[in-house]
Write a protein that binds this DNA or RNA. Structure first.
Lengths: 191, 191, 191, 191
DNA sequence: GATGAATGAGCGTTCATTCAT
DNA sequence: CATGAATGAACGCTCATTCAT
């Protein structure tokens, strides 16, 4: 018997609907239907819609950070580490546009703030790699001596913006363009 | 108070509520209450909620672009022009955090896409200055030869992220820090 | 100075809108606009919407009954009197479809009942002619000895139905067809 | 009460309210209350108010046509067929006055027109019997050679008017009076 | 008198959540 | 455990009516 794991189905349905239609376009009944479960069943796995969404976000992050760390060599020069991680992040978003669009929706909602706070504090798992890399880069005088928050902004701001434009079809990013974009981000943070 | 001007009150109440609570936290009845008018009165000035929001956005842009152009000297070097405009933009957002938060909400909604498209096409008034500057910068080989979309991302991505962090209280930006941040953005786009 | 008589304009606008769109499609603001007066002005002439409508109905009747009596010769045989009046009524409705449609709307509303009661009691001016003719016809044994209410139904039921069908375009009534229809109505009531 | 069947309750409440008060007097909330269900529950059974009303009308017709055909013998003379059907119709309306009043409301609304058109075309089930009978009656020269639309008007116009008067209490119809009224209708359509 | 901006109760409809089965 | 019918508060919006000008 294939056990599609209802929880999994619910999470998947939520991701798709929210990514494609926004929070407005994803009522619980619709999520339930797409997940192939009863509406009430969702509440066995998630206390309420907020919890479902927050949990979904958490799971996404758990998928993303390992993915972009693949092939990551902590002994390489800082610049190469930065390019590796940033390229990985951008490619991940391009290849998993549903994830990206959900994350954007999420960040632009009440939850987003608390979440961001946690990340910057470094209390949130996943961002650690970036956190550590940036601190190290600054201490090594390879990167600008700016508050971490600003380094994050310089590094990820353009990445997210470019990913969005790609997904919305305003631009098509090939390997070369990705490389040049990430390189430009490095120019922003490097000393 | 000479003339309460209900339209003004409605626009102000909408801005505040949407900026503070998001679209969800701004039902028409609440906007009306905060504006000190009856619920039906809103509909004398705005055909429906969508129109109210779109109009509000438009008015915001009309305020922003003139503000950041103040003291703009088109004959200065490209780098200084860039720094001037970007600093103006960042400062405007910091000093008008409600405007900024509303705009962020707006961009993250169905309207946002169409709006963004117009902007990139340069068909939308206001962005022209940036559009023209970037095209000129690229042609003069002062800036990287990347698609405009990406230049926009490199320039504004960090600005918006930093403004957000400031408004959320994750960082306090003084003059010096603003200057350094904008400088770093220039590093990202300059040749 | 042309004094278009605001009251007249209001009545005309109401008739048109209600006839064309039904009560739903005739809000006071729209009536005011079409009448070329301010919304509040209507309330100078009519206490409220109900009064406006009732009054409009009354005025319509005052126009109709004289119109169909034109050329009426009370000394002709009963059959000819019946044909004359019924033909007049049907033609009036066909030629004044707005009037007809308004009356239909009106009859199908709470007002309608009270109005109909008044008519049957003969307390309402206008119906008198029919009332008198039918009573006379019965007494002369030219018409069936049925309660007046039923005679009215037999005479007017088909007339109204046919007028409706004509106006809705389900049939086109020429002179001959009108004559045959009215003749058939007579067959229904005659002895 | 074995099974309250909410759908049934909703339909019944709608019928009563609309018949008694007209469409205006039957807001969804009131229908829900009278049906003893939550407001939202109605929407589980009917997509929206229009659908509810249309569906209600359809169900009424499904009840009526079988009812009046009871004891119908298609091999009897045309006159008797006509009297049988017409008497059945009139009796049904008298005995089910809510049904009648709802149908009157319905016919006097945007839906009514489309519905009427379908009926005249004979594309609508139920009216077939009348349609067929009238066509046959005309071809057999038992009935006047008039367009079907007019035959319908001559036959049903008085029936509906009389039913209305009875329900509104303007007249009390006993068996004899019903028979005489229907007979008079026959006089209207017969050759 | 005449106006039309302002009102707010009331409408049709949605949807997160509950709970009897 | 899982269901999905049921709920009702809340939404965006309309419109008869009022009243300051």
């Amino acid at each position: 018997m294939a056990k599609p794991d209802k929880r999994e189905e619910i999470v998947k349905a939520s991701l798709e609907l929210i990514a494609e239609q926004g929070f407005h376009g994803a009522p619980m009944a619709m999520i339930a239907e797409r997940a192939g479960v009863g509406a009430g069943t969702i509440y066995r796995y998630f206390e309420n819609k907020d919890v479902l969404i927050t949990e979904l976000y958490r799971e996404l992050e758990e998928r993303i950070f390992p993915a972009i760390q693949e092939g990551y060599a902590p002994d390489k020069p800082i610049r190469e580490q930065f390019l590796h991680l940033s390229t990985g992040l951008l490619k991940y978003f391009i290849e998993n546009s549903l994830d990206f669009r959900f994350i954007e929706q999420f960040h632009n909602s009440p939850y987003g703030v608390a979440c961001r706070r946690d990340k910057l504090m470094g209390t949130k798992a996943g961002c650690d790699i970036f956190h550590d890399l940036f601190e190290y880069g600054i201490s090594q005088q390879a990167m600008k001596d700016l508050p971490l928050v600003i380094i994050f902004a310089l590094a990820f701001g353009p990445i997210l913006a470019v990913a969005r434009d790609h997904i919305l079809g305003f631009i098509v990013l090939d390997e070369a363009m990705i490389a040049r974009t990430v390189e430009a981000c490095w120019d922003g943070v490097r000393r």
